[in-house]
Simulated scan of single mutants.
Amino acid sequence: MSNQTVDNHSPRDSGERPLTSEEIRLASEELRGKEPWEVLQWGAERFGKSMVLACSFGYEDVALVHMLHRVAPETDIFYLDTDLLFPETYETRDRLAKALDKSFIRVRPEYSLEEQARLWGGELWKRDPNACCGIRKVSPLRRFLKDYSAWCTGIRREQSPTRAHTEVVEWDHQFGLLKLNPLAYWSTGEVRAYIREHGIPYNPMHDRHYPSIGCVPCTRQVRPGEDARAGRWSGMAKTECGLHPSGEF
């Protein structure tokens, strides 16, 4: 492994036609009862190198990285580097890269934090978190995903009310490609058990009541009784960054 992160990548082309709405519905029904690695294997066989996995280095994503490494190790894996991630997130990235001998594609915003402050004012996340997420997450992701036919995420129904209707296979209208959510029906306990069973490196912040970890300014510890994403954008109406729309974008 020459690098633990890669800033550039080549466009992929699966040579396959897009699935129809009916084919997506049937695939979701067929795969709903399958294990997550079987969903990943289906995606890899269907889309080849035109499928990509998103990784934030949280519980769900490190489990998926491990599963994908078992069934389709050549598949691209990327992360969104907002320049505002916790040190523990970068450390988890490096530990996982070393453990699996895998490079991760680093996707960055068009603007540095200094440029963003000059154009939109300092600490935009406090005044307009939607705009900040749009600049540092949504726009970079849109540019990146245009080279792929399918992407895989770690979102689960159990995480929050906004994700309660997530399906294993969906059409992503925002980004215009197929979306696979292999862990949609898994519980937190199942994800943690998989990580323990396989000794997968994970973010130590999870052991300090951070079930969902994003950018430093917009993440806090979760209190007893709160849902897993209550620590994101605390005190604001915002519940999603815009990558998985819930009516905000």
Rank of each mutant, 00 (worst) to 15 (best):
G134P: 01
G134H: 13
R136E: 05
K137E: 08
K137M: 08
S139T: 12
P140E: 08
P140W: 04
P140K: 08
P140A: 07
P140H: 06
P140C: 08
R142F: 10
R142L: 11
R143D: 15
R143V: 10
R143S: 14
R143G: 10
F144P: 09
F144D: 09
L145W: 13
L145C: 13
L145Y: 12
K146V: 13
D147R: 09
D147S: 13
Y148I: 12
Y148V: 12
S149L: 11
S149K: 15
S149G: 15
S149F: 12
A150I: 06
A150N: 06
A150G: 06
A150P: 04
W151L: 04
W151M: 05
W151N: 04
C152I: 15
T153I: 01
T153Y: 00
T153C: 00
T153N: 03
G154Y: 08
G154N: 05
G154I: 08
G154Q: 03
G154D: 04
I155S: 03
I155F: 03
I155L: 12
I155V: 15
R156P: 05
R156F: 06
R156S: 04
R156Q: 12
R157T: 03
R157L: 02
R157W: 02
E158F: 09
E158A: 10
Q159N: 08
Q159D: 13
Q159I: 07
Q159S: 06
P161R: 13
T162G: 03
T162I: 03
R163A: 01
R163V: 01
A164W: 07
A164F: 05
A164V: 02
H165E: 07
H165W: 00
H165C: 00
T166D: 00
T166E: 00
E167S: 09
V168H: 04
V168W: 06
V168Q: 04
V168G: 02
V169F: 11
E170I: 05
E170M: 10
E170Q: 14
E170H: 07
W171E: 03
W171T: 02
W171G: 02
D172W: 04
D172C: 02
D172A: 04
D172V: 02
D172K: 08
H173E: 15
H173M: 02
H173Y: 12
H173G: 03
H173R: 15
Q174A: 02
F175E: 12
F175Y: 14
L177Q: 13
L177M: 13
L178H: 04
L178F: 00
L178V: 09
K179Q: 11
K179A: 07
K179M: 06
K179F: 04
K179H: 13
L180A: 01
L180P: 01
N181E: 09
N181T: 13
P182I: 09
L183K: 06
A184P: 10
A184K: 12
Y185G: 06
W186E: 13
S187W: 03
S187Q: 08
T188F: 10
T188M: 13
G189P: 09
G189C: 07
E190I: 01
E190S: 05
E190T: 01
V191N: 13
V191G: 11
R192Y: 09
R192D: 06
R192E: 14
A193W: 12
A193R: 15
A193Y: 11
A193M: 12
Y194T: 00
Y194L: 02
R196G: 00
R196N: 03
E197N: 03
E197G: 01
H198Y: 15
H198Q: 14
H198D: 11
H198L: 13
H198I: 13
G199N: 15
G199Y: 14
I200P: 04
